[in-house]
């Protein structure tokens, strides 16, 4: 464990907590893409499937973190699609999730380190996570604005994988550990946030709201 991965995981936890708080406090999921949250839930379940296969005692933080990620993302989907369904902005959350799931699944079958079920599920989860934020970014571009709290959520969510890139550089240098598939997907994922990061740093930090040119 290194400082980059530690802060990456903390940033990821913060993102999940910020979103849950936003929906719970405002009792509304306006401006939140339900599809992105569904895709994240699928990522966690397919990536941590080993938790369900051979049960291991929750002796270490990694297992606990995995369970937190899975339960928090499923709970977020519950809030969006059931509890606060009336506030779900289905019209603007219109990116076709199939256009993300099918290519990720196909690519996972073509490019992977080992052709076995668990490894393909893990690879699928990595590819899907790289593009899972697209429906959320698409929704913001359609509505033309993002609530400040939602911007903080996106900033934390984007920072988590950016910090993981630093973690991979660190591990390459000090542990000569390389996981090419995760690195390439992580770089793509972080690049997708670039224009949002620019808007966030130039606007939200100064207290302005993000409003995209209509």
């Amino acid at each position: 464990m290194n400082i980059f991965r530690l802060f990456g995981d903390l940033s990821h936890l913060a993102a999940i907590a910020i979103l849950l708080l936003k929906i719970w406090k405002t009792r509304s999921c306006a401006g939140v893409s339900g599809k992105t949250q569904l895709l994240f839930a699928v990522c966690f379940i397919t990536r941590y499937i080993d938790l369900f296969l051979h049960f291991v005692s929750l002796y270490n933080t990694e297992k606990v973190m995995k369970l937190i990620y899975i339960s928090a993302s499923v709970f977020t989907c519950y809030l969006i699609f059931f509890k606060f369904k009336a506030t779900y902005d289905g019209n603007h959350d219109s990116m076709r999730a199939e256009f993300l799931i099918v290519p990720a699944a196909g690519l996972a079958c073509l490019i992977n380190t080992k052709f076995d079920a668990i490894e393909i599920l893990w690879t699928f989860s990595i590819y899907l996570e790289a593009v899972a934020i697209l429906p959320q970014l698409f929704l913001i571009s359609k509505t033309g604005e993002a609530e400040t709290i939602t911007s903080h959520y996106l900033f934390a969510q984007g920072s988590y994988r950016a910090l993981y890139i630093l973690n991979w550089i660190y591990r390459y240098h000090y542990e000569s550990h390389v996981d090419t598939i995760a690195i390439v997907a992580g770089v793509v994922q972080t690049i997708l946030y670039c224009d949002f990061f620019y808007l966030y740093i130039t606007k939200v930090v100064k207290g302005q709201k993000i409003v995209l040119p209509a």
């Binding site: 991965r5 995981d9 990821h12 051979h54 973190m65 990620y69 893990w122 973690n167 995760a182």
Partner: peptide, 10 residues
């Protein structure tokens, strides 16, 4: 006996 844990990150 879990196979050698290749992916040790979240």
């Amino acid at each position: 006996l879990s196979p050698f844990k290749k992916h040790d990150e979240l």
